[in-house]
């Protein structure tokens, strides 16, 4: 585990001082409101059986963020996980999962600034999860058709989640960026790089979701009302 943590800084974690204090505060407030809402709504989604699932998804996102695949010389990408958690455990629990990953990374792994937590949570836990879940929901008829449809849904949701989350960074930078780079440069760098990362993210998300759906369809939140409700109940009784 050690030694690989520094790679995971590249993708979207913002450091302290990248945006000014008022902007940090603003997005801190946005993130806080969203987290409170998610915590309230997540209660309905979380029971004895889904709590360990949420823990595992969170740990998975955390661990997979350490597995990097090189994209360009000097730049590597990793899973952001927004679409993945949204599809597997739903948007509310998913938001909490991503936020927890970010908080633990900031506190224990010096990954992402403490005052940038608001912007990071806004990008990855709010924008990422909402976009990922929205796209997945819109494509649900396709996902219901079978393995290929589900893989395509997961891929598109994950790809858009990554790119739109990168746009979130561009917006924050436009509002209160303290660097001297022009907005066009930042836009090109962020969106271009994250379109590449998004492809990797899409591949990994599609692979994970289809693998889970093949073995345990009862664990896929997106399809919770669709398939084999009896199996779900049986699995619930087991724990």
């Amino acid at each position: 585990m050690s030694g690989s943590t520094h790679d995971s800084v590249v993708a979207m974690h913002m450091s302290d001082g990248l945006v000014n204090a008022p902007t940090s505060l603003l997005f801190g407030a946005v993130a806080l409101v969203w987290l409170v809402l998610a915590a309230l709504r997540a209660r309905a989604d979380l029971d004895d059986r889904t709590a360990p699932m949420a823990g595992l998804v969170t740990a998975f996102v955390f661990a997979v963020q350490m597995i990097n695949f090189p994209i360009l010389p000097g730049a590597s990408g990793h899973l952001l996980g927004g679409a993945l958690v949204a599809i597997l455990v739903g948007p509310w629990v998913g938001t909490l999962c991503i936020a927890i990953v970010l908080v633990v990374q900031a506190l224990l792994f010096a990954d992402g600034g403490l005052t940038a937590l608001g912007t990071n949570i806004t990008n990855m836990a709010l924008i990422g999860v909402v976009v990922g879940y929205g796209v997945a929901l819109a494509l649900r008829p396709l996902a219901r058709r079978g393995k290929g449809g589900l893989a395509a849904t997961a891929f598109v949701a994950a790809f858009l989640n990554t790119v739109v989350a990168a746009l979130g960074f561009v917006v924050e930078y436009a509002i209160g960026g303290s660097g001297g780079a022009s907005l066009g440069t930042v836009f090109g760098l962020m969106v271009g790089l994250h379109a590449l990362i998004g492809i990797g993210e899409g591949v990994i998300t599609a692979a994970t979701v289809t693998a889970v759906a093949a073995v345990r369809p009862d664990l896929v939140y997106l399809l919770r009302h669709e398939r084999r409700p009896l199996l779900r109940r049986a699995a619930g009784a087991a724990s």
Partner: peptide, 20 residues
């Protein structure tokens, strides 16, 4: 809720790393 998920996450990181 948050501390529950966080606790399980930290427990499961070991599980995933070992499995990987």
């Amino acid at each position: 809720l948050v501390t529950t998920i966080a606790t399980l996450m930290l427990r499961y990181v070991d599980v995933i790393v070992a499995e990987a």
